[in-house]
Amino acid sequence: MIDVHTSVQLISADPQLTAKAREVLCQAGLSCKLLHDPRDCQHAPACRWLQPLPAEVQLRLILDEAISTLEKTRHAFKSRDLADLRKRLQQCLEIL
Rank of each mutant, 00 (worst) to 15 (best):
V8F: 08
V8Y: 11
Q9N: 09
S12W: 03
S12F: 08
A13V: 04
P15S: 03
L17K: 10
T18N: 02
T18Y: 02
A19M: 01
A19L: 08
A19W: 06
K20Y: 11
K20W: 13
E23M: 06
V24F: 09
L25H: 08
L25S: 08
C26S: 08
Q27H: 10
A28Q: 05
G29S: 01
G29C: 04
L30W: 11
L30E: 07
S31Y: 05
C32W: 09
C32L: 10
K33N: 04
L34P: 03
L34D: 00
L35A: 03
H36A: 07
D37G: 08
D37E: 10
R39C: 06
C41I: 07
Q42S: 14
Q42E: 09
H43K: 11
A44Y: 06
P45G: 11
C47K: 02
R48L: 14
R48P: 15
W49I: 09
L50P: 13
L53Q: 03
L53C: 06
P54M: 13
P54T: 14
P54S: 14
A55Y: 03
E56Q: 15
V57T: 13
L59K: 13
R60H: 14
I62F: 12
L63R: 07
D64A: 12
I67P: 14
S68I: 00
L70K: 01
K72H: 02
K72C: 00
T73I: 05
R74E: 06
H75P: 00
H75C: 04
H75A: 04
H75Y: 01
A76P: 02
K78A: 03
S79Q: 02
S79I: 03
R80M: 03
R80C: 06
L82N: 01
D84V: 11
R86Y: 05
R86T: 01
R86H: 02
L89D: 04
Q91A: 15
Q91M: 14
Q91N: 13
E94I: 06
I95N: 15
I95L: 15
L96Y: 07
